[in-house]
C-alpha cells in the first residue's frame, strides 16, 4: 500500500542482506575456485623472484603502455574515465562511505558532492561511449556476449539511478533511491558470476602475469 517506501525498506533491508549473502558466497566461491587450483611446481632456474614483479604488475598494469595507448586511445581513455568516475562515486561519495562504515566498519574521508556529481556525469557519458564502441568496433562486437551487455546495463543502471536519485529526477524519492539500491544489489549478485569479478580477480591475474614474466626477468 505504501508503495515506494516499503519498496525502499525492502531493498535496504532483506534484499540487501540477500544480495550481500549471494555476493559473499559467490565471491568466496570464485576466489577459492581459483586459488585451490594452484600452480604446477616450476623447476626451471629463475632469473628473478616472483613476488615483487607480481606486485608491480598488479599496480603497473593499470596504466597502458604507450603503444597500446596510441593504437587504442579511445579504449584506454574512456575506460579510465569511467572506472575512475565510478570509483569516485562509489568510494568517495559520503553516503556510500557511511554504507561501508555501516557494513564493514571502515571509513575514510569523502569528496564534496559537486565533485562526485561531476565524476558521475562523466561516468555516465563515458559508459554510453563504451556501449557505442562495443557495438561498433569490429573486435568488440565480435567478442561481446549477452553477458557483456547485461553487465553494461547493470553498471549503467547503478550509476544512472544514483544520479537520478541524487538530483531527485524521479519521484517519489524512496522509489528513486530504492531503484539505485536495487541496481547496486543486482550488481553485487552478478559480480561473482560474471566478468565483474575482475574487480577482484584482475589483481590476482595481474600478479600471476607479473610473477610468470618476472621469474624470467621481464617486468610485465
Amino acid at each position: 500500500m505504501n508503495g515506494s517506501m516499503e519498496f525502499l525498506l525492502w531493498v535496504k533491508g532483506p534484499l540487501f542482506t540477500i544480495a550481500m549473502v549471494i555476493f559473499a558466497i559467490g565471491l568466496l566461491a570464485r576466489l577459492l575456485e581459483i586459488f585451490l587450483l594452484g600452480r604446477a611446481p616450476n623447476y626451471a632456474e629463475a632469473r628473478a623472484g616472483e613476488w615483487l614483479p607480481g606486485l608491480r604488475t598488479m599496480i603497473a598494469r593499470t596504466v597502458a603502455d604507450p603503444g597500446t595507448f596510441k593504437r587504442a586511445p579511445f579504449n584506454v581513455v574512456v575506460g579510465w574515465l569511467w572506472h575512475i568516475g565510478f570509483l569516485i562515486a562509489l568510494l568517495l561519495f559520503i553516503p556510500h562511505i557511511e554504507l561501508f562504515k555501516g557494513v564493514l566498519g571502515l571509513y575514510w574521508p569523502g569528496l564534496p558532492n559537486p565533485i562526485v556529481d561531476l565524476a558521475t556525469g562523466v561516468t555516465l557519458v563515458a559508459l554510453v561511449a563504451t556501449l557505442v564502441h562495443r557495438m561498433t568496433h569490429p573486435v568488440k562486437r565480435r567478442i561481446s556476449t549477452t553477458e557483456d551487455y547485461l553487465v553494461w546495463t547493470v553498471v549503467f543502471m547503478v550509476v544512472l539511478t544514483g544520479y537520478l536519485a541524487y538530483h531527485r529526477l524521479v519521484e517519489p524519492y524512496p522509489l528513486a533511491l530504492g531503484m539505485h539500491i536495487l541496481s547496486a544489489e543486482l550488481l553485487l549478485v552478478l559480480l561473482p558470476f560474471t566478468k565483474l569479478t575482475h574487480i577482484f580477480t584482475a589483481f590476482i591475474a595481474r600478479w600471476y602475469n607479473g610473477a610468470a614474466f618476472g621469474r624470467k626477468g621481464v617486468q610485465s
Partner: peptide, 27 residues
C-alpha cells in the same frame, strides 16, 4: 592444463578487445 592462473585470467577478462591491438595477425 587448467590451473589457478588460468582461472584467474578467465575470471578477469572484460572483453575489452585490447589484446587484438597487440596481435599482428589481427592488426
Amino acid at each position: 592444463e587448467i590451473d589457478a592462473p588460468t582461472a584467474a585470467f578467465f575470471s578477469s577478462c572484460v572483453h575489452c578487445g585490447i589484446c587484438a591491438q597487440s596481435c599482428p595477425f589481427y592488426l
